[in-house]
């Protein structure tokens, strides 16, 4: 295990942990309100580690819905992870042992993907970096869930601390860092606009994030069709 790479991974996860704090906390609070025990809420954050998916599952638990509904809704929401991890394969290949890479890919979320794919543009991936980034982010998610589930009713308003903007700020910066040529700007803009328009026309696609999946596929296809500039 490369210690330097591990440390870089842990450091890169700090902004993510900051952003997870209010999100995981809110999940913990809502989970206990939906009738889940602290152990169940924690177990869900340990085993699932997916913000949107866990909120969906909570909704189903709250209304005593069918378990299969929660599972299918999650499969739909998580289609985007399939795209994320597939786009990481060309980087990971020949650098990280496939078995280890597969296991560590369990920690791929919107946020860890955004950070990792940025780093891989100039640094070859290592298992130590993946572990540092993904496990730290995961621990942040788990501990904020526990805090929310235990403290629940005591802290009602986390908005005043501005932490709600931690993840948007991180996306903004990562997007700026990722852009190296004008065609990247075009692809990002097309994807952003498509994603919003699709979400506006079909509000259900906002819930299962299909607007993002469709927008990404369309924009990446456009990227292949145009000449890089």
């Amino acid at each position: 295990m490369d210690r330097v790479e591990l440390t870089v991974g842990v450091k890169d996860a700090v902004p993510i942990v900051l952003g997870y704090l209010p999100l995981g906390f809110a999940f913990g609070v809502l989970a206990s309100q939906a009738g889940m025990t602290v152990i169940q809420a924690t177990a869900m954050s340990v085993l699932c580690f997916t913000g949107a998916g866990q909120y969906i599952a909570l909704g189903v638990i709250q209304v005593q819905g069918a378990i299969i509904t929660a599972v299918i809704a999650n499969l739909l929401v998580n289609v985007r992870y399939f795209l994320f991890t597939t786009s990481m394969v060309p980087f990971l290949k020949n650098h990280v042992n496939p078995v280890i890479a597969s296991i560590l890919s369990y920690g791929v979320t919107d946020e860890t993907y955004a950070v990792a794919i940025n780093r891989y543009q100039n640094h070859p991936p290592t298992s130590a970096y993946m572990a540092g980034l993904n496990i730290t982010a995961h621990l942040g998610w788990i501990s904020s869930t526990v805090l929310g589930a235990v403290l629940g009713s005591m802290v009602t308003n986390t908005d005043q601390f501005g932490l709600a903007f931690a993840l948007p700020a991180m996306y903004i910066c990562l997007l700026v860092l990722l852009i190296t040529k004008k065609s990247d700007v075009l692809i990002a803009l097309v994807s952003a606009i498509l994603c919003l328009v699709i979400g506006y026309i079909w509000p259900w696609s906002m819930e299962n994030m299909f607007n993002m999946v469709i927008a990404t596929i369309a924009a990446a296809t456009l990227g292949v069709m145009i000449r890089e500039f």
Binding site: R80, L83, F84, T86, S87, D110, Y113, A114, I117, N118, P168, Y171, I172, L174, L175, L178, I179, D184, I187, A188, L189, V190, S191, A192, I193, L194, C195, L196, G199, M206, N211, M212, A215, T216, A219, A220, L222, G223, V224
Partner: peptide, 13 residues
């Protein structure tokens, strides 16, 4: 191109 597309969409959303 998946990464810039995903980040564009994530930022906008």
């Amino acid at each position: 191109y998946v990464a810039p597309a995903v980040l564009g969409a994530l930022t906008a959303l």
